[in-house]
């Protein structure tokens, strides 16, 4: 398992909890591991919990956008959840709105949305 995050699988959904103060390599590894898990476990939904992240800089922001894009290509609907207010404001200031990613307030909000679409 990657050092950057824990990946749990619940039904057809992969839950990814990213840890704080991850290194760039960790999060690149996570990208690889997650794409492989989506395929091997035939996941239809991915929830990435970033509540632990005190900061998201342009590098991590770009990887988050990529994670969403990759999952979408692999037919798994992806939600980024738990972003802190200060992080959201900072990302907007950095001009990174993660336009291609779905977001939800929390893990349970994302799961509810996935269930409503029959994906969880």
């Amino acid at each position: 398992m990657s050092e950057a995050a824990s990946i749990y699988s619940v039904d057809k959904v992969l839950l990814v909890a990213i840890r704080d103060n991850i290194t760039d390599t960790d999060i690149i590894n996570l990208q690889e591991e997650l794409s492989e898990r989506i395929v091997s476990q035939k996941a239809r939904g991915v929830v990435i919990d970033i509540a632990a992240l005190e900061i998201v800089d342009t590098f991590v922001g770009r990887i988050l956008a990529q994670l969403s894009a990759i999952s979408r290509l692999l037919a798994a609907e992806t939600y980024i959840v738990g972003m802190r207010p200060a992080v959201a404001m900072t990302l907007v200031e950095l001009d990174m709105d993660l336009a291609g990613s779905r977001t939800a307030l929390s893990l349970s909000h994302a799961l509810r949305a996935l269930k409503a679409k029959g994906l969880a």
Binding site: E54, V56, P85, A86, M89, T90
Partner: peptide, 27 residues
């Protein structure tokens, strides 16, 4: 890089910075 972020973050905590200020600066 993680060490640099942590060092700045800790000092800002010790100085009593607001959450938003801290996030912006550490970023």
């Amino acid at each position: 890089l993680a060490a640099a972020r942590l060092a700045v973050s800790k000092l800002l905590d010790a100085m009593g910075a607001r959450a938003l200020r801290k996030t912006r600066f550490v970023t």
